[in-house]
Structures are given as C-alpha cells and as structure tokens.
C-alpha cells in the first residue's frame, strides 16, 4: 500500500474515534511496535537503492504527521469531555432576566407620530384638559349657537363658569398663538373628552394630536406636502393619499384626508366600508377669524392646522377592533406592544 492511501486511511480511522481508549488503539495500529510505520521502516532494505532515499523521507514525514494528528485528536477529545462534565450549557433553558414592561400602544403611536413631525422641525407642546369655552369654541370661530357645535358635544364643569373638558386638541392652537408669535410649527398630543356612549368604536375619553404651522407664505400645498410626509412615515412609502374638501369652522379652505386602505390596499373591504379609502385626519388653512382672535396679522401670516385621532390610527396600524381595549389595561393586551 502506498503512503498517500495510508494518509486517507488514518483520517478515516480517526474520525470514528470518540474516546481516549479508541484513540490508543489507532495509535498502536500505526505507531506501535508492530504497527504500520514500523512495517514501512522494515520494508526499506527491500527497496532499490536509487529510490530508497526518497521513500525514507516520505515515511518520516508520514510518521511526524501522525504524531500531530494524534495530538490534535487527543485535545479535541478533552474538550468534548469538558462539555460532558459539570460545565455543560443547555442554551434551551430560559435566560435569566426579569420581565420587561411595555409602553401603552397609544403612547407608542403618539411618540411615533410626534417624532415624525419632530424630524420635520415641529416642536411638541401640551395644553390643559380643562379648558375655557372661549378656547374650545369661540376662539376657534365656532359660534356657540350653531349646528357646527353638534360635532363637538362637550362635558361642562359644574360650579365653574364656562369651563369644560376640551372636546378636541384644537384649543391648543389658540393658546400657542396667544403665547408665541410666528413662525410656529407645533404638534400637541393630548386627551380629549366627548359625551359619547361607550361601544366598540366610541369612547368618552380619547386622544388626539393637533398640528399647527404659521409663518409667512405658508400655503395649502405645504399642508399637502407635510401630511404626505407624515402618512408615508407612519403607514409606509406605498400609501396613497387624497384630500377632500370639508368644513371645519377654524380652517378655510378645509380638507379631510384619506389614505388608501391599509387592509385591502384600496380594493374595498369591510374596514374601509368598500370605499378603498380610510379617513385619518382633518386639516386646512388657519381661518383668518382665528388669527384675528389671537391678534396675528392675517395679511402677513398664513398657516395650516390639522388634527387626528390617535386611537383610530392605532386601531388601523395594529388591527385592533375595539376601542375599549385601550382602557381596560389587560396585561395580555398591553404586553403585545
């Protein structure tokens, strides 16, 4: 047998070895007194003189190669032994850590939306939940005795004159414009209240995010651009948007904004009422009467405002079908976010 095929045979033998005892057996087979190497060495005298030198070198190289192989195998057997010993790791066991809590899904969505606007340069502000009738209505060009109030049924406070729980986050517009002068770019998240009977899609307490931008030369096309940036950031690059004329007393022109249904992609399904579109916010150019109330010069400045319901966006984004889940605080629900 030639030395090359012997090499292959050794490797083959070693692969089958899984204990020091077996390794010793293999070692004896090759390096023992009557082993293969001894046999090869013994065969040298029978080799023609001119080939003898070459053959001897090959046998020597084979022999030292064997020593190396056996040493390696021995090491690896020791490692294996260590694994089987007391330091064994079962990585399938649970990791040692305490449970991490979760942010409420409404907080997550609010933060996500606010941070989109922050990245565009808007600052984030807040306003009180107990408001004046003036800030909630009159200052926003909503006359007290007008059907447009119908959309804003409101909780009034007992024992205080004209104090109420804000029925939208828009009074923050009045506050911000009273306190600061343009240029302004602000979003205001917050809780709002309306006397609604509670069911799967209504709640007497919910959350909105208001946006306001006022400056020189702010225009309707800016409103469209900013809201498109927002919608793509929240709902994905592929989302389509449309602006529909609508009426809000505090903006003119006003628009309701729809996105293509994120469930069916616009084909029409039960979520979008077969329309292919989902209404997600109201918006428009700040009404000059609102500017007048806060003494901002409507000839010099213009602006846009928008408002959206956080629950609605969270429900769409997470596929939640009952608004009451947000306020039940079931840990099995909360821990999903």
């Amino acid at each position: 047998m030639d030395i090359d095929s012997l090499q292959a045979q050794v490797k083959n033998d070693l692969e089958k070895v899984s204990s020091p005892e077996a390794l010793e057996e293999v070692r004896v087979k090759y390096l023992g007194r009557k082993g293969v190497v001894a046999e090869l060495t013994g065969s040298i005298p029978g080799i023609p003189v001119q080939e003898r030198g070459e053959f001897g070198r090959k046998v020597n190289a084979f022999k030292s190669g064997l020593h190396e192989l056996f040493a390696k195998k021995e090491e690896s057997l020791k490692d294996g032994e260590a694994l089987r010993g007391e330091n064994i790791i079962d990585i399938g066991m649970p990791g040692i850590a305490q449970q991490v809590g979760t942010l409420h899904p409404l907080t997550r969505i609010t933060d996500e939306i606010c941070s989109v606007f922050s990245r565009m340069g808007f600052s984030v502000a807040e306003g009180p939940e107990v408001e004046t009738e003036y800030n909630n209505f009159t200052g926003l060009n909503i006359p007290l005795e007008h059907p447009s109030r119908e959309a804003f049924d409101t909780f009034y406070l007992k024992d205080y004159d004209k104090k109420l729980l804000r029925s939208h986050t828009s009074p923050a517009q009045v506050r911000i414009m009273q306190e600061k002068k343009p240029p302004l770019a602000v979003v205001v998240p917050g809780r709002v209240y309306r006397p609604d009977a509670v069911d799967a899609s209504h709640s007497f307490m919910f959350h909105q995010i208001e946006g306001l931008m006022v400056g020189e030369g702010i225009k309707f096309s800016d409103l469209k651009g900013v809201l498109e940036t927002f919608a793509k950031a929240i709902f994905g690059e592929g989302i389509k948007m449309r602006f529909r004329p609508h009426f809000f007393p505090f903006t003119e022109p006003s628009a309701e904004v729809d996105i293509s249904c994120i469930i069916c992609g616009g084909k029409g399904c039960s979520v979008c009422g077969r329309k292919g579109w989902l209404e997600i916010l109201g918006s428009g150019m700040v009404h000059p009467n609102v500017f007048k109330h806060v003494a901002i010069d409507a000839d010099k400045y213009s602006g846009f405002a928008f408002g959206m319901g956080v629950e609605r966006i969270a429900m769409l984004k997470y596929g939640i079908n009952d608004i009451r889940l947000f306020f039940e605080n079931d840990l099995r629900f909360l821990r999903q976010f």
Partner: peptide, 12 residues
C-alpha cells in the same frame, strides 16, 4: 384639491 401640488415649507 388633487391638482394642487405638494410642497414642503421651510421650518424654523
């Protein structure tokens, strides 16, 4: 409204 272009304002 759909024919009005989209633009982005300069924000301070």
């Amino acid at each position: 409204y759909e024919k009005i272009p989209n633009s982005l304002p300069l924000i301070t």
